[in-house]
Write a protein that binds this DNA or RNA. Structure first.
Lengths: 233, 233
DNA sequence: CCGCTGGTTGACTGGCGAATCACCCGCCGG
DNA sequence: CCGGCGGGTGATTCGCCAGTCAACCAGCGG
């Protein structure tokens, strides 16, 4: 643990090492026992710090969850935005979004678990509705489908918003399957298959016949844009 | 449990009027403030009964939620099973399942809200994992897709389990949109559109080209099977 | 060497709410 | 008329846990 005497300046972010440790511990504990099912004491123990220190860095338990959310979600949204605003055909972008979500899961499954289980469906209560965030993401990719519709690539009568919602619905359901253990997350093949099946069936479901035909021809060419900035959190 | 004295026959269910009142109140309060965000006192007040009576009928708060779940979910599963085991082509059945879900929402939106928000994604903790129930439903309709796959109606390489999960994922996402107010639930047209778009895009997404072609020809002929047993709860 | 500052500690407390319990009341059977 | 019983009541109890706080320590500047 204690590597003190850090040369102040250090790695980009201003937040102290300790703060990050606590955040990390919070994610792990939330993932294991759920937000309501754990005490601050658990988080402190997991992080290997004193009880009171948690309150030094976070106003209260709620803010802790809030922060976990902001951190994880903003990373996700940023990546999605990059995909949406990038170049390439719709199908490619859809695959890109799916890729982003699954990659996030691969890199930090517990963080994803918390996002899905604790936040996406958090009951009405909590202060500034986090549902807004979810909606934002949906709206973000709506733009994609709006444009596609104007180009006549979407099947007629399909609401772009709904299309966008369905995409995230599919992704969420698939990830949920892994999160709750329905599917075996340790099998990298299962991840890969789920990924492509989701993208495919979504595209088939949403595109016009002509466009869909092209989907069939698509094959994973170990794509260029695979880069992957080191996922934070 | 002493069920004597009462003119035995009476209204089907054995449970007392009071018990049902409390259950109903619980659904309403859970929907409004969330399971964790409400006190037993709230439920009692809503039901117009004494605090202690809640504990007369239910062992504890958890059992109350559990019961709300069992009641609502078993009704849903029963209806889905009826559809799955009925006659007719796959497409028809898929539409049937979607119909069941939306009808449940139309009849008792608050109950659906509780199921979706409080239970589907309940954190690891709670006793006998209710996730099992969710999985059961998915498995149930998997049979459908299994059969379809053998008949060659499913696109190749598509896992029947996944197809089933996607169907429920789509339904859930759509209902969530209404539950959280993203879509206007008071507009019966919105419900209707969402319903058909979900079914359509799912079918297009999952079926082989040949089968999908038939989907296009489908038109709502104010179907026979619309009957609708009076939804319980 | 002194004292300040800011990160760090963990015992303590105050409130909240789940669960209990002693009591009530109307009914029925003897 | 009595006594027992089951549905019904709500004040009281009791444990838990979020959040506080006084004290502690390490470094540092003077």
């Amino acid at each position: 643990m204690g590597q003190q005497s850090k040369p102040a300046a250090e790695s980009g972010t201003r937040e102290s090492e300790r703060r990050r440790t606590i955040l990390r511990a919070a994610i792990d504990v939330f993932a294991r026992k759920g937000y309501h099912g754990c005490r601050i004491a658990d988080v402190a123990k997991e992080a290997g710090v004193a009880y009171g220190l948690v309150y030094h860095y976070f106003k209260n338990k709620d803010e802790l969850l809030e922060t976990v959310f902001d951190t994880g979600w903003s990373g996700f949204v940023t990546r999605v935005r990059a995909v949406v605003e990038g170049e390439g055909p719709l199908a490619e972008k859809v695959r890109g979004i799916v890729e982003v979500a699954f990659e996030a899961y691969r890199v930090d499954p517990r963080a994803v678990k918390v996002l899905i289980l604790e936040i996406a469906r958090s009951p009405a209560g909590s202060r500034i509705n986090r549902q807004t965030a979810f909606v934002d993401a949906i709206r973000l990719s709506s733009a994609l489908f709006n444009a596609a519709q104007e180009r006549g690539e979407l099947r007629t009568g399909l609401d772009p918003h709904l299309a966008s919602a369905l995409l995230f619905g599919n992704i969420e359901m698939a990830l949920t399957a892994f999160v709750v253990g329905l599917a075996d997350a340790r099998d990298p093949d299962a991840l890969e298959r789920a990924k492509s099946q989701i993208a495919d069936s979504f595209l088939y479901g949403v595109l016009t016949g002509a466009q869909a035909a092209e989907v069939s021809e698509w094959k994973p060419e170990k794509s260029a844009t695979k880069s992957k900035a080191p996922k934070r959190s």
